[in-house]
Every structure is written in C-alpha cells, then in structure tokens.
Design a protein around this nucleic acid. Structure first.
Length: 496
RNA sequence: GGCGAUAUGGUGCAAGGGUUAGCACGCGGCCCUCUCAAGGCCGAAAUCCGGGUUCGAAUCCCGGUAUCGCUGCCA
C-alpha cells in the first residue's frame, strides 16, 4: 500500500536552515535525521541556506549554523548553496507558472506581517478569517497600476494528496488552500526597479528541490500543512514530488514550542556547557525515533545502521535536559578512552591548564590514565578543569566545606605529617604500597583508616569528593602527594 | 474561526486485536563503599473522555476534549 521509501535511484536529501537565528535543537534534529538517512542509504546530503527574506536574514549567523553542524559531526556533500544567489531560477519558474496558467499576477497592496484588506474578510469570534481566493486570479486587479506579485492559482476543487513516510498517505482539500504567493512584487514604483522581487518560501523550496534532485524531503512537521501547496507546484512545474517525511516538533517542558524562554535552545550552548557531541547526537536521535528494542546507548555508526524513517514518531516531544545529562555521563563513562582523551585535551587547552608534555610518550600515557580515573565522576567536560583541577595543576584551593568535614579531628595534622614521612620512605610507589602504609600507620596510631583516608584526600586534592584515594595517589605521584601532605599538616584546624 | 495532525506513568520511547502494558530518564529505598559517582537490586508511577465493532480494544471506527501546526509579499 505504501510506496517504497527508498529506491534504486540515489538518495538525495537536504538540510535547509534559514539564517534568522542560531542552529536550534529542532533544526539540529532535522539535520541529524537527514544525515543519518543519507549516510545509511549512501546518498547525498546537501546544505542549502534559505535566505530569501532580505530583511530578516542575517548573513553572519550562517557561520554559527555551520559550526553547530560541524560540532555534531554532520557533514554535507554539496553546498552550502544560497537561495539569495539563485533568484533568477525562481523568477523563471514563477513565469513558467504564469505562462501555463497555474499562476496569476496579483495587484493587491503589499502587506507584511499583518492581515489587511486583502487577507481578511470580517471577523468571527474575534478571529480573523482569511480569504482563500484572490480576486486578481480572474484578471480583476483591485488596484491596477501598482507593481504586481505572482500568486499561485490553486484549483477551485479537488484534493491534493502526497505520501509521507512518517504520517502516511495524506490528503488536503484544495478548497482549504489559499492562493499563495510565489514572487514578491518588485521594489519601487511601476517603471522603476526590478519587475519582480524575491521569491517566497514555497517557490524557492520547490524549485531548488527539483533542481537539486532531492528524493526525500525530511523536515519539521510545521511544514505538513504547506506540503499540498508544494505538491501543486511540483505539478505545475512538471516535476514528480519527492517522498516527504515530516518530523514531530520539539517542545519545551511546558509543551510549548521550544524557544529562548526555555533556556538553552542553541546547540552552541550545549557545546559551551561541555556536552560531548556524540552524546548530544544520541539524545537527539531518540527524540522522535526509536529502533524498537531496549537499547538507547547507540554510537554514530549504530544510529546510521538502525535509522528508519518509518520508525519516526508522529507525536511532538518534550526536550528533557535531565536525560541529555544522563547520556553525557554515559558517554563519559563508556567511550573508548582514546575517543575521550582528545576532547579533554581541548578542554584543558581552553582553560590554560594544558601542558605540552602530555601530548605524547609517557606524558600521554599518564594523561590518559588520569582521564580514565577521573571520568566516572565527571558530568561535563569543564569539570576536568574545575572539579579535577588538582590533578592537572599545583594551584588549587582546599574547599572549606571539605576541610570542615574531614579535618575536624584534632589528630589529623599529626597523622598527615606522619603519613607523609611513611610514604616518602616507601621503597616503591603503587596502589598497594600506599594502601598498606596508610593502614599500618592507622593501626599504630589506633585510628580508623577511614579517618585518615578522607583527611588525606582533602589534603592532596582539596576536596571531599575524588576518585578512590590510592588510585589518586598513584596518578599524582609520590613527590606531589608528600609535598601536599606536608603543606597541609602544619595547618592549624580553623575554628568556625 | 477554518483546515490538518497528535493523544501510553512527570519525561522519552516499546507493545499495532489476546502480555501481570515493556524499557530508559527522573524520583524513593537497599546493596557496594575511604568520599562522591558509577554499577547492581527493589519500589511508586500510564493507555485523554464517551460511544461503537469484536469472544476479546492501549491497538480498529465515530464523536468529544486537549495540545501542537498551518491559515503572512516569514521560513
């Protein structure tokens, strides 16, 4: 019953952001689904910048959008193409529609962002009721003498249907489709400036999707109601519509469309907060799609392998940041260490804690071991620079709260000093040697090992929370541990 | 207002005519334990409402409701 979603011809998809803002999570998810589908089908991913609205378009935002895609690892094979540079193509298409009778010149006054005389016809219950058929379509211009725009002449009856890989066969009555705008009217008065202005969205999208031989249009479900207009346009331009796949929208916790009100909606923000791109990708992939089984942790290759348009949900979903954070900790924990280390290196470089000796050889080994030791307790990349600072720098502070909690006992300074001595005298430096030395000292002094373990942790990393003590000692090295213990031991217990 | 889409625990997804309605996040508890995580175990928590079809409905049909989208010389 349903048509094949992919066929033998090469799959060609596109991601088509509009540079009126940053790359938001909804756009990123759309890009991801296009990309997963293209990579799985060994197809072609095209990037197209939809910048036909000169007034709202901000060219400088394109860079940020591309940066966001790059961060997520979403590359493209063709483009970026800019619609603003393809105006003649759209004008030619609009004129073709004019010539074959599927469009008409509209002389109605240009009205932006408000429904004026043309757009409304009385009100009902306080709501504006739009008119679907423009008077100009039969050659009766309301204000002849002004510069015309071009509108599509929607058939007066009948049904327009299309296949959607997510929503199935879909039909709209033509009576409900308005005579939509194809080409804006030209600037200036009649006789001056261009004959016509910039193309409208519906036109440029269809013309480009035809020209770029797009086989699958994968985009947000907010375009579902636009699709019949576009199908009509395909027909008017003698082209076969592609397979459509509309993705459910992403909502905020209040079930409203995700926006700045909900906090971070730009993918750049998540990069800056220190999320791992692959974790973000995994999280995004599962927002509106699931492979069917119980697995959720899927790295890029597995997502590509399992992705199916048919499995995409039709329900709008809420962006759950807590789950994203969980994914991030999972990736921090499970990523092969060699995949994680370079990202930590970047983090330390940006926080000026990086030392070149960690770039190769024994230094690299130490760095890798240390990252591996640290990672179960890391939530976000910057934690390596802040929370784990004492592992990478000798300049760190003793947290007052940790001091208050674990240096309470008056015996602590003396114990730390004695431990420093015992450790300094150790014939070898490893986990068990440190362990035995500390426990032997505690036994001799008649204190519980926990007391000294916790006190020592505070002394050598400045915090109450860190990896297991003896592993920490090994990684820090004898010299540092002894030195930090001695630095801590004479400190009188601070009275609150 | 018109048109369209959608409706499974708080959240994301599974079950697509027959299951004690499954998994994950989050939440609570226990275990592990040198701190905190991680991990393991246990628990609370859902089929929007109303009709119909059927031996049997979360699942199919109709109506209602709610939510979202479109209804721009925005994309």
């Amino acid at each position: 019953m349903s048509e094949p979603i992919s066929n033998t011809e090469n799959v060609r998809v596109r991601f088509a952001p509009s540079p009126t803002g940053y790359l938001h999570v909804g756009g990123a998810r759309t890009a991801l689904f296009n990309w997963l589908f293209a990579r799985q089908q060994r197809g072609t991913m095209i990037l197209r910048v939809e910048d036909t609205d000169v007034e709202r378009n901000k060219p400088e935002l394109v860079e940020g959008i591309l940066a966001g895609l790059n961060w997520l690892g979403l590359n493209w094979d063709e483009g970026p193409f800019y619609q603003s540079q393809r105006t003649e193509l759209y004008r030619a298409a609009a004129k073709k529609c004019l010539a074959n009778g599927s469009a008409f010149l509209c002389y109605c006054p240009a009205e932006k962002y408000v429904g004026g005389d043309h757009a409304e016809e009385g009100t009902e219950g306080g709501q504006v009721r739009r008119v679907v058929r423009c008077g100009c379509r039969d050659g009766n211009p309301s204000t002849p003498g002004t510069k015309p725009a071009i509108r599509f002449k929607v058939p007066v009856s009948g049904t327009t249907t299309f296949f959607d890989a997510v929503f199935g066969d879909t039909a709209f009555s033509n009576d409900d489709i308005e005579d939509f705008m194809l080409l804006r009217s030209g600037p200036g008065q009649p006789g001056e400036g261009d004959e016509f202005g910039q193309p409208m969205y519906q036109l440029s999208v269809v013309v480009d999707d035809i020209d770029m031989r797009i086989t699958h249009v994968i985009r947000g479900a907010d375009h579902l109601s636009n699709t019949p207009k576009q199908v009509l346009l395909y027909r008017a331009l003698d082209a076969k519509p592609p397979v459509f796949a509309h993705l459910p929208l992403i909502l905020g916790p209040d079930r409203k469309r995700l926006s700045k009100r909900h906090g971070a909606t730009s993918v750049t923000t998540y990069r800056e907060e220190g999320f791992l791109p692959e974790a973000f990708q995994n999280f995004l992939a599962l927002l509106g799609w699931a492979p069917g089984g119980d697995v959720e942790f899927m790295r890029t290759a597995e997502l590509i392998e399992k992705f199916k348009l048919e499995g995409v949900s039709r329900t709008n979903g809420v962006f759950d940041k807590a789950k994203l954070e969980w994914f991030n900790t999972q990736y921090l924990q499970k990523l092969p260490i060699e995949d994680l280390v370079p990202q930590v290196e970047l983090e330390l470089r940006s926080s000026k804690l990086w030392k070149e000796e960690w770039a190769s050889g024994a230094g690299r080994e130490w760095f890798t071991r240390t990252v591996d030791l640290l990672r179960p307790r890391i939530r976000l990349l910057p934690d390596f620079s802040s929370w784990a600072r004492a592992f990478f720098s000798d300049e760190f502070a003793i947290e007052p709260a940790a001091e208050a909690k674990f240096w309470k006992d008056p015996k602590v300074p003396d114990l730390l000093d004695k431990l420093a001595g015992a450790l300094a005298a150790l014939p070898e430096w490893n986990h068990d040697a440190c362990d035995h030395a500390l426990r032997a000292l505690c036994e001799a002094e008649g204190v519980k090992a926990g007391l000294l373990i916790n006190a020592t942790r505070v002394a050598i990393v400045g915090q109450a929370v860190a990896p297991p003590l003896f592993d920490t000692m090994v990684v820090l090295g004898r010299e540092r541990v002894v030195q930090r213990l001695r630095a801590a031991s004479p400190t009188p217990i601070s009275k609150p």
